[in-house]
Write a protein that binds this DNA or RNA. Structure first.
Length: 808
RNA sequence: GCCGGGGUGAUGAAACUGGUAAACAUGCGAGAUUUAGGAUCUCGUGCCGAAAGGUUUGCGGGUUCGACUCCCGCCCCCGGCACCA
């Protein structure tokens, strides 16, 4: 008896693989290249998560199969170690982040090695290494040079808990910070911003160049949020001022009855009439004092004040009262809205609240305009124009176009495209990040650090707690802060804000290609050889964060000639998260965290890897189940026994040989399609058949080969030790199935009577496509005959090789 | 509200372009082995029924010889966005 003991074999092979460097990716190798990328982890104090293991096991199996297929595969890993979580963890431990980060990295690396992932460790990277972030800073200097990095005092998101500003993408829909889950506020602060908006159209258009799963692509499209409309300029009665509104529905302009300004709109103070001044300014002040949360908590109840002014609608010569209300947002469009209460629910609610005129200009299919003073009568859908002069009778789409042309002709306005996407707030008031390579000089302003002085190293600071004042903790480091202006040589101060944690991950996939380069971020020939990433696998949560940011930065690098492709990732897929056994997100506070180390210790790495692939569809969230994992452990135990006992020096029986070749095809296809769960199922199906039979030594080898990507250790042990082959199974070619062996001699044909299954018949393969032959045999089948006697067959439907249906 | 994705056994789930619904695994039941437990192995397992048979993919309708799959209406769950003009 020779039991399967993973603990005895796994370490041995991991060391051998590392020693022989069989997973090394070779630059410029003539074999076709394949770049598989997983999102490099933030090395948290909690260690590797079973969720990491899910994605990486699957991509490891995928990459191993690609290697066996003859590709020069690059499957690298590194550490995304700057940022808030790393800093918060170190603060909690009362230690310096540089220490905790390197310890955590060591632990992560050990865990990856224990799982036997086929990473090319020579290409390991770390975003907190000055030799790495030198190039992160270099990219910032290039952005600055091209005017894509700028300083501005703008309303920004502020997390009082983390004491830093945040990008819009880091604030969740309910106003919570995506990292700490605490509510955020709006603040006015001078910030570094990146002009991602300048790339909005290309980020949208170039989605056509890539293969992203539709969920990801649609989410990016929505986030970029392109809207086409028109800016209309209205004269304001008795003043020289004009007000510009943005609308996507100019077709309804004959129904416009009022104008609303956002409280922050600069026109408010200029135009308000004395009589209304106090009340209006009070409203503005009150609105500004309210937090986002307070505004939302009022629900849809409309508030507002009249300014005493009127805008003139040139179409109708109607005097439209100008109001101020906080439902108009300064951050969207022009900060001013034209109210069409007959056809917009918010405008309707506002008009009802303040008794403003409502005109209906669109009718729906029912044509009913009788009771427009009910909200359910607000017409926002498709329809035909009425009460609209030259638009009457047109449908709303045609009317929109006609009106836009008309307004532009008359010079009353101009077509305008706007985006939901905002410029990227790039400053963080924290210690643990890349210093922004800029010096502030009283004479010269913000001056970039010279390229030869990169990296601007993050100084070692004992006290690095965020101040909460809006100033970075680096500001207290006077020795470091006080410097000379690179331009005039006068006394100046360093920028003390640091970059967000997304800065290092913007371009990390390029550094894997050439991680020792000190002349450029990576050698251009190597970039040309390896890029783009062929398959990028990561979490859904990064769709409008890292994924969008890195596309933007890559496009910028493309524009300055640093890379050779407009898009970094040819294909993007996402995986579902692994939930705790209680179906909740794994969290220390729920006590439902599964530690991969314990699983490896108890069942071995191969079992863990196999289970993570088998647990369910790859893109779906699945709860952890140790019982189900035991099924995978049993499977490997049976595989082990079969290789010991059910391999003979005889030819494999035909049935099993056919099954083997079907399995080779299925496993290969499923790996290619990232259908890991059914891939494992087909391996299991095969051994269920094998256990009643036996394989020849040669065919047993084939099975070891197709098992190798999913369970690399046991496959290697079997390959070398049980079957006595030469190291390594992972360097064998991927088996090809023999199409002739897959052909079945006898085919099962389903017999239906009026669509109901009444029996099945075995027909020799060649004959199963001839209707008359199948029909004759089928009619003789007793169960079928029973349903046919005394009935007239009105029709016979025949699907060659599959089915015959008698309709009676 | 808008935009996506879903709803199939006790559970995770399979099902190619419409062609035997429930592969594979878990769980459960029975048995074998064992001093016992565990492990392992064999058989069974959608539901109703002793059986023959009937019946089943969120609900209601439709197309079709035939629908988890296509069409129409509705309900529910998950994700994203949202006083966005």
């Amino acid at each position: 008896m020779n039991p399967y003991e993973p603990q005895k074999i796994e370490k041995k092979w991991q060391e051998k693989w590392e020693k022989e460097k069989i997973y090394r990716a070779i630059d410029f190798d003539p074999k076709p290249k394949f770049y598989t990328l997983i999102e490099f982890p933030y090395p948290s104090g909690a260690g590797l998560h079973v969720g990491h293991a899910r994605s990486w096991s699957a991509m490891d199996a995928f990459s191993r199969k690609k290697r066996m297929e003859g590709f020069n595969v690059l499957y690298p890993i590194g550490w995304d170690a700057f940022g808030l979580p790393a800093e918060n963890y170190a603060l909690k431990m009362g230690r310096h982040p540089s220490q905790t980060v390197s310890e955590n990295i060591a632990r992560f690396k050990k865990q990856c090695q224990d799982l036997g992932f086929s990473f090319d460790w020579e290409r390991e990277i770390n975003t907190t290494d000055p030799k790495y972030y030198q190039w992160t800073q270099w990219i910032f200097l290039r952005l600055l040079e091209k005017g894509l990095a700028y300083r501005a005092k703008t309303p920004v998101n502020w997390c009082p808990f983390c004491k830093t500003t945040l990008a819009d993408e880091e604030v969740l829909a309910d106003g919570l910070h995506e990292r700490c889950g605490q509510p955020t506020e709006k603040r006015q602060q001078e910030q570094w911003l990146l002009k991602i908006t300048q790339y909005a159209q290309r980020l949208l258009d170039d989605l056509r160049l890539v293969d992203y799963s539709s969920k990801i692509a649609i989410q990016q499209v929505n986030w970029i949020g392109k809207k086409e409309g028109i800016n209309i300029v209205y004269e304001i009665e008795k003043t020289e001022e004009k007000v510009t509104v943005f609308t996507t529905r100019p077709d309804t302009n004959f129904g416009a009855t009022f104008v609303v300004l956002a409280p922050e709109h600069p026109l408010v103070e200029k135009i308000v009439i004395e009589e209304y001044k106090e009340k209006t300014l009070n409203y503005v002040a009150a609105a500004k004092a309210k937090t986002e949360e307070e505004r939302i908590s009022q629900g849809r109840k409309k508030t507002g004040v009249f300014t005493g002014c009127y805008a003139l609608n040139p179409l109708t010569n109607l005097r439209m009262p100008i109001w101020v209300s906080d439902f108009a947002l300064m951050s969207f469009g022009t900060g001013a809205v034209v109210g069409v209460p007959g056809h917009d629910l918010r405008d309707f609610e506002f008009a009802k609240e303040f008794d403003l005129k409502i005109i209906r200009v669109v009718v729906g299919p029912d044509g009913d305009t009788s009771d427009i003073f009910k909200p359910e009568q607000v017409q926002e859908q498709e329809g035909k124009m009425v009460n609209s002069d030259f638009l009457n009778g047109l449908d709303i789409k045609a009317a929109t176009k006609r009106m836009m042309d008309y307004i532009e002709q008359k010079g009353w306005g101009k077509r305008q495209t706007i985006f939901h996407l905002r410029d990227w707030i790039f400053s963080r008031q924290h210690y643990w990040g890349e210093p922004i390579p800029v010096v502030h000089c009283p004479k010269c302003g913000a001056v970039p650090v010279s390229e030869k002085d990169l990296p601007v190293e993050l100084p070692y600071v004992e006290k690095y707690e965020p101040s909460g004042t809006g100033e970075s903790p680096l500001a207290k480091m006077t020795d470091w802060v006080n410097t000379k202006c690179p331009r005039c040589g006068g006394l100046a101060k360093r920028e003390t804000d640091t970059m967000p944690n997304w800065a290092g991950s913007n371009w990390y996939f390029l550094r894997y290609l050439d991680n020792q380069n000190d002349k450029s971020l990576a050698d251009s020939q190597k970039i040309k050889y390896w890029m783009p990433v062929d398959l990028y696998q990561g979490g859904f949560e990064h769709t409008t964060l890292h994924l969008l940011y890195s596309r933007f930065i890559h496009k910028f690098l493309y524009d300055i000639g640093a890379v050779n492709t407009p898009e970094p990732y040819a294909k993007r897929r996402s995986h579902g998260i692994v939930l705790g056994p209680d179906n909740r997100k794994m969290s220390k506070s729920f006590g439902n965290v599964v530690n991969p180390d314990e699983i490896v210790l108890k069942y071995g790495a191969d079992t863990l890897r196999l289970y993570e692939m088998f647990m369910g569809p790859f893109d779906q969230a699945i709860a952890w189940s140790e019982q189900s994992l035991q099924g995978c452990s049993r499977f490997l135990g049976r595989v082990w026994q079969l290789f010991q006992n059910n391999v003979k020096a005889e030819e494999t029986p035909a049935d099993l040989l056919r099954k083997l070749h079907l399995t080779i095809r299925k496993v290969g296809q499923d790996l290619e399609d990232l259908k890991f769960n059914t891939m494992v199922a087909s391996l299991m199906e095969f051994i269920n058949d094998w256990s009643d039979s036996y394989l020849s030594r040669e065919d047993a080898q084939l099975f070891a080969q197709i098992l190798a990507p999913s369970a690399p250790h046991i496959a290697e042990e079997i390959w070398c030790e049980t079957l006595g082959n030469q190291f390594s199974v992972h360097q064998q070619p991927w088996p090809t199935y023999n199409p002739q062996l897959i052909v079945e001699k006898m085919l099962t044909v389903i017999v239906q009577v009026t669509g109901r299954v009444r029996g099945q018949v075995q027909i020799e393969n060649g004959r199963s496509v001839i209707q008359s032959e199948v029909e004759a045999v089928a009619k003789k089948e007793p169960r079928v005959a029973q349903y046919l006697t005394g009935k007239e067959i009105r029709r016979t439907i025949f699907v060659p090789g599959k089915l015959i249906n008698f309709v009676v």
